[in-house]
């Protein structure tokens, strides 16, 4: 039982990171129907942008600000020079999906080129704090609290602000939203900027776990897909719940009663992804029409 509680706590930590990344991915999908295979590498971009800051002696919470701006700027810039023009030329979903695979490689190996294959850290990882039922490092606690705050912010934005309502409207029914006077290009751009900022933030959270390296986001990508699809693609709240389930499931799979080698824990999450697509492709929160 003690072991299970500890694993669940670990799962919540990684699930929080996946959730922040997944919400960005699913917001973009909701509006553009684009499955972005480069999304994981944007996490890495954010994490490394913060490494530059901490390397210059800034504390992480200061270095995070330019890193988040870099994430938003690059995603927004790509909408301007790549995705927008391609859509106007009538590129199909599959065409854009393949482009995103190429973009992922360019982004990832540019980071490899600049930073090498080594491992970077924001700082030393502190001793675990014993919470009685489980123990977490202070960094883990920051990840959970920081992610929860970001997700709460997104929820608030979606529910309360004009732009959030416009995003939901566009995601529900593009034609209807457009006909009711929503400026699609503007909302699309803002969605990219929010997704870029969130993803960079998620990347920093991922790096806070201990290691920053050029493959980190790519290794998380399929778990992000799993969280998004389990929750229901296009649904931001679904992505949060789905990611949490994925995080906890893959940690629990290593429980000694199950005895799976920890190498295979991501395999379990992948299996969940496939099963969901086969049994209930609309996920937990999604609706059939959104497919």
């Amino acid at each position: 039982m003690e072991e299970a509680l500890q694993l669940i706590a670990n799962g919540v930590v990684i699930g929080s990171v996946i959730a922040v990344a997944a919400v960005g991915l699913t917001l973009v999908f909701g509006i553009l129907r684009l499955i972005n295979f480069a999304h994981g590498d944007f996490l890495t971009l954010g994490a490394f942008a913060a490494v530059v800051g901490t390397g210059a002696g800034l504390p992480l919470y200061v270095a995070a600000i330019p890193a988040i701006l870099v994430g938003a700027g690059v995603m927004g810039g790509l909408e301007k020079v790549l995705w927008g023009p391609m859509r106007r030329r009538g590129a199909s979903t599959v065409n854009l999906l393949i482009i995103s695979i190429g973009l992922a490689l360019v982004l990832r190996y540019t980071l490899f080129w600049i930073f090498g294959s080594g491992v970077y850290r924001y700082g030393p990882i502190s001793q675990r704090i014993d919470f009685g039922l489980f123990a977490l490092t202070p960094q883990d606690v920051i990840i959970v609290v920081g992610s929860a705050a970001a997700l709460f912010g997104v929820a608030l934005m979606l529910q309360k602000t004009r732009i959030g309502k416009a995003m939901r409207a566009l995601s529900d029914n593009k034609d209807l939203a457009e006909a009711s006077g929503i400026d699609v290009n503007r909302v699309t751009m803002i969605t990219w900027l929010i997704a870029g900022a969130l993803t960079a933030y998620g990347g920093i959270m991922l790096g806070l776990q201990g290691r920053v390296f050029a493959n980190m986001g790519w290794f998380l990508l399929l778990l992000i897909f799993a969280g998004v699809i389990l929750g229901g693609i296009g649904s931001a709240y679904g992505a949060m719940i789905g990611s949490m389930i994925i995080g906890v499931t893959q940690e629990l799979a290593t429980h000694s009663a199950i005895g799976l080698p920890s190498d295979l824990k991501t395999g379990v999450a992948f299996l969940v992804l496939i099963l969901v697509l086969l049994v209930r492709p609309q996920g937990i929160m999604g609706r059939k029409q959104a497919l």
């Binding site: 393949i98 482009i99 190429g102 973009l103 190996y109």
Partner: peptide, 17 residues
Amino acid sequence: AYLRQIGIGALIMAIMI
């Protein structure tokens, strides 16, 4: 080796575009 991978990615994008 990194430049080769960047090249593959750029090639994929260029063909598709």
